[in-house]
């Protein structure tokens, strides 16, 4: 039973959210359709824009997959095991949130640069370019979104404790079955939220990608970089249209989670 807060408080909260979130975001959508549907359609017919959207989808897809798999693994390690260096690892996990994306981009460029990077040179020798190429974009995007899944799961893992897992083990389940049938269902909401946040963050990444991609139009330009480019070139409808597409992905993802959640809550109560 949610108690009704005082009216004044509600007004403040709503005004705050509208001014900071809802209004600016809605302006992106209205801006996109300022001159009707035609310019929007034209924008999404542009092969360069389509390419950028595809690249963003690829980078975000990899970031979600990698961060989900490793995120679950790292979270399990951090919560369920004790080992020397655990605290250090936990602190490291937060680093991508604390460091500016531009710094992340530069760091990746230093390590993977084809000319002088520690790893970049040997990789270039076997024919794999990381910087100014898709792998670098995937790497930067994954790095930036790395803590999100982990940070969503850790508190859930801590809260459910180990007894259910131990019960499953004593009932004959091996480690993998226990994970799949007990641990995973227990953390599913945290995981879903983490994945959604990760997706939204990956789709929207700008700074780190800008550094590592070289912003080669039609090749390494992601959707966010395209938005900037269109905006700078005074193609406002185009910029708003792509921006609206990016915003839609996040809004739809969050809406789906909200709906799913409401449905399961209704079913179990």
């Amino acid at each position: 039973m949610a108690r009704r807060g005082p009216v004044a408080l509600r007004v403040v909260v709503i005004a705050y959210l509208v001014l900071l979130v809802a209004w600016p975001v809605s302006l992106v959508f209205t801006g996109a359709f300022a001159n009707g549907l035609a310019p929007v359609i034209e924008t999404f017919r542009d092969p360069l824009v389509l390419n950028a959207l595809r690249l963003t989808a690829i980078a975000a897809g990899w970031a979600v997959v990698l961060n989900t798999v490793f995120g679950v693994g790292v979270a399990l390690l951090l919560v369920r095991r004790t080992f020397p260096g655990r605290r250090l690892l936990a602190a490291l996990v937060d680093l991508p949130l604390a460091v500016s994306p531009v710094v992340v981009g530069l760091a990746i460029a230093l390590v993977y640069g084809a000319k002088s990077g520690w790893l970049g040179v040997p990789l270039a020798n076997v024919g794999l370019d990381v910087i100014y190429s898709t792998p670098g974009i995937v790497l930067a995007t994954t790095f930036i979104a790395l803590p999100l899944v982990i940070r969503e799961i850790i508190p859930v893992l801590e809260e459910v404790g180990t007894e259910q897992e131990q019960a499953a083990r004593s009932l004959g389940a091996g480690p993998w079955t226990t994970f799949r049938r007990i641990t995973l269902p227990a953390i599913r909401w945290g995981l879903i939220y983490g994945v959604v946040l990760c997706l939204a963050r990956a789709v929207g990444e700008f700074g780190a990608v800008k550094v590592v991609s070289g912003n080669l139009i039609g090749r390494t330009q992601t959707a966010t970089l395209t938005v900037e480019e269109l905006y700078m070139n005074f193609d406002r409808e185009g910029a708003f249209a792509v921006a609206a597409a990016l915003a839609s992905v996040s809004i739809i993802a969050i809406a789906i989670v909200g709906l799913l959640r409401a449905r399961t809550e209704r079913r179990t109560s």
Binding site: E163, Q166, A167, A168, R169, S170, L171, G174, P185, A186
Partner: peptide, 28 residues
């Protein structure tokens, strides 16, 4: 390992599997 010992274990705080019905818990 525990799953090979043929023991049943009952915990103080039940350790019920909350996402499964009572029957599914028992059937696990």
């Amino acid at each position: 390992p525990p799953q090979k010992r043929g023991v049943g274990f009952v915990f103080q705080h039940y350790a019920a599997f909350p996402h499964m019905s009572v029957a599914r818990n028992i059937a696990f």
